[in-house]
Computed example of a mutant assay.
Amino acid sequence: MFAERGLADSARADELLEELQLPDLPNWQRVEDALWTEWSKSGSASMDLLLKRGRDAIEAEAFGTAIEHLTALVDHAPDFAEAYNSRALAYYRSGLYGPALSDLAHTLELNPRHFGALTGLGTILEETGHDAAALGAYRAAHAIHPHDPDLEEAVHRLEIVTSGRTL
């Protein structure tokens, strides 16, 4: 079931990712939201419910509960990139950078164009003092999503930091 659903979602996600590349895209937030919606479809109502419960727990700052729900999701849908990405956020918010990095790696293995996972990777690398590697992650995310002003600012900030200039 997941593989069949994944092909349809992949085609729609590909269309949305291509649209994000358009230079003049005043409604880029709408395209980004639609892409997140596509990435959040597992193909199973019960798996989608686990994702929702995990995300709701993150929003409520119940990170342990979020990790439990999202771990169940990963266990039952190991090819669902958004399961790993969401759990990475729960781990990150819990201060567990190692597991978060591992889940971000899984996300990117399953979905190499996941700009959210690349942004998360950049954030952790920057927070841990790996500025050059963080810049690489932010640049990769910005290449996929050139309209996100936060990514543009992160690239600019780290280009200055890594060049030795001051802000």
Rank of each mutant, 00 (worst) to 15 (best):
E18P: 04
S44R: 08
Y91M: 04
H76I: 03
T65E: 15
A88Y: 01
G136P: 03
G136Y: 07
A132F: 07
W39G: 01
I144P: 02
T65S: 13
K52Y: 10
E19W: 02
G54E: 10
S94D: 14
A57W: 06
A141Y: 00
I67H: 04
A34S: 13
W28M: 06
E19Q: 14
G136F: 01
H76R: 15
R139W: 00
M47H: 15
E152I: 05
N27H: 13
A117C: 07
L89W: 14
E59A: 14
A45I: 03
P99A: 05
A77S: 10
L96V: 12
G120K: 03
L104V: 14
A132D: 08
A90M: 05
G43Y: 00
E68A: 07
D103Q: 06
E18I: 03
A81C: 01
W36N: 13
D24F: 06
A57L: 03
A137Y: 09
L25N: 07
P99N: 01
A88M: 02
A100E: 02
P23H: 13
L50N: 02
E61R: 10
A77Y: 03
V155K: 07
P112F: 03
G54M: 04
D79H: 09
E68N: 11
D79G: 10
A105K: 12
M47I: 15
G122I: 10
G120I: 03
D14P: 02
A83H: 03
A154M: 06
A83T: 05
A117W: 14
G64K: 10
A13P: 01
L73Y: 00
G43C: 02
Y91E: 09
G98S: 14
